[in-house]
Design a protein around this nucleic acid. Structure first.
Lengths: 123, 123
DNA sequence: CTGTATCCCTAGGGATACTG
DNA sequence: CAGTATCCCTAGGGATACAG
């Protein structure tokens, strides 16, 4: 018997809602995508400096997973000292407007949200 | 000296990118928003059944935080047995299209992403 | 410069039992 | 029905040191 709600369930791990959240819901992925989207190609240390409070480890991990998913390309220049440039792929670019829409929404609503939160705490 | 990158930094906790991720980046918030958005007002146990694999604790926690942020309203009917209905607020509704855009993006790209991921693993 | 390799620690979240 | 209240446990992620 089919369940009419199955589209919300993680059957076969195919729920699109969750697949996107597992990818972008971590601490840094969206931020890296936004920075690369707005600033264009960047080097590892440039990203590190721009984001500021990300650890080297997490920047590496985040870039690797974005690269694995084909959202970011990694280009190594065999120089000394080494240079590595990261760029958003077309797939990554296609995600950008949606992420930016979300951040714009946040900008518009953050004050109201904070106000709601305080009222809720007080009650 | 002003830093031209400060818009990406969490100065005063005001980075809009992060404020949205901290809110929606948890395991269940977006899913609850989508379900309430598509199905309309629902009772606690209805949500619990529809989502299926969320624990009672996490559903409570998630709904509370969404309520605190003014994304969801909680209406209690003083009956026995008790009935509680959850509905998306206007603010919650305004977020819905962006969340749905993200899930549509995921639907379109998930196959390609999975393919990229396998190629990456193999290399 | 661009990363690995460890160690470590907290907080998110699951399971279970209990309550009005 | 609609939640609390605990306990517990893992995985995300920070700090630090080292390497090509």
């Amino acid at each position: 018997m089919k369940d009419k709600w199955e589209k919300y369930l993680p059957i076969d791990g195919n729920c699109p809602v969750r697949s996107v959240l597992d990818r972008l819901g971590d601490k840094w992925s969206m931020l890296v995508i936004i920075v690369l989207g707005e600033e264009g190609t960047m080097r590892f240390n440039q990203l590190h400096h721009v984001i500021g409070d990300i650890s080297q480890k997490m920047l590496t991990v985040t870039l690797k997973s974005l690269e694995a998913d084909g959202l970011v390309t990694r280009k190594v220049f065999p120089e000394i000292p080494p240079r590595v440039e990261y760029t958003l792929t077309d797939r990554g670019m296609s995600l950008l407007p949606h992420v930016e829409a979300l951040t714009k929404w946040a900008l518009v609503h953050i004050d109201g949200i904070r106000a709601s939160r305080e009222k809720y705490m007080a009650s």
